[in-house]
């Protein structure tokens, strides 16, 4: 038995060649230095910004819920409506796309079309999609709703497809053996296995959509984001603070509600 070398044991390096390892470290260091030099660090602009930051953070300490309350309330209600409607519509639409994108359920052409569609839905950031929909449908909540639906279908569809591909195939096979048609096999053999995960992910998406509703409002797609950008543009940092506090509170509330729902449903 070899015991004398036990203390000297080291895991083998992930990159076998010592020269390659040294070159990688040197290369990484040089790149970081060059990157830092390339950034235009302007001390004067930083000083100017610091003064504005003091105003901004000062506003944080004096949140004003009153002056712009009607705008804030309208923005919040719009954001909530967009979030709930888009999550529900996205959930419903994601089911056919998710099932169609599961390799173990459908023939290759259907799989390719559904996977392709889901990839397109996820290809662009929500802000870009929102800009597109604002250009198509004009400013307001409908553009935001459409943006969130597309994002939700891309997100839930992909994860549903992955969940379906990981299911236990035996119950599905048992239903096939009993002569059950395709739709019944899906309803009884697939959905009961993936539904807990999908409901959990839908509740998570609800959180994300509320946050996103604030972001896409910045480009004109309605919701609390539009109220926020207006307050910023007017340098009303007290109202900005109030809006951000409300967004954070809503997210906390959503977390509590979704946690309870998850426990009850799953």
């Amino acid at each position: 038995m070899r015991t004398e070398a036990a203390g000297a044991w080291r895991p083998p390096p992930r990159i076998a060649s010592a020269t390659t390892r040294r070159l990688l470290v040197l290369g990484g260091g040089a790149y970081t230095v060059i990157a830092l030099v390339t950034i235009d660090v302007d001390a004067a602009r930083m000083a100017e910004g610091a003064a504005r930051a003091v105003d901004f953070f000062g506003g944080w300490l004096r949140p004003d819920f009153v002056t712009r309350w009607s705008d804030i309330r309208a923005g919040l209600v719009e954001s909530l409506a967009m979030t709930l409607a888009a999550t529900a519509a996205g959930f419903v639409l994601s089911v056919p796309f998710g099932l169609g994108a599961a390799r173990n359920l459908v023939p290759p052409p259907v799989y390719a079309v559904c996977r392709g569609a889901l990839a397109v839905f996820r290809a662009f950031h929500e802000v870009l999609v929102a800009i597109l929909f604002v250009a198509m449908f004009g400013f307001g909540a409908f553009a935001g709703f459409m943006t969130l639906v597309v994002a939700t279908v891309g997100f839930l569809g992909k994860l549903l497809a992955e969940a379906v591909e990981e299911i236990d195939a035996a119950p599905l096979e048992a239903l096939t053996a009993a002569g059950a048609p395709w739709l019944s096999r899906i309803a009884f053999g697939v959905l009961p296995q993936v539904m807990p995960r999908i409901l959990g992910l839908t509740l998570y998406r609800l959180d994300i959509n509320f946050r996103e509703s604030a972001i896409i409002g910045l480009v004109g797609a309605g919701g609390i984001g539009a109220t926020l950008i207006t307050a910023f543009a007017r340098y009303e940092f007290e109202s900005v603070s109030a809006i951000l506090i409300l967004i954070i509170s809503m997210l906390f509330l959503a977390e509590v509600v979704s946690g309870r729902l998850r426990r009850r449903l799953l």
């Binding site: 035996a170 048992a174 009993a178 002569g179 059950a180 048609p181 009961p192 296995q193 539904m195 807990p196």
Partner: peptide
């Protein structure tokens, strides 16, 4: 084939039940 399968009952090694039902 679906009709024919209905005439053959199959019992599986690991039960093949849907646990959540």
């Amino acid at each position: 084939l679906r009709s024919a399968r209905r005439r053959m009952g199959m019992i599986f090694q690991e039960h093949a039940l849907i646990d959540r039902l």
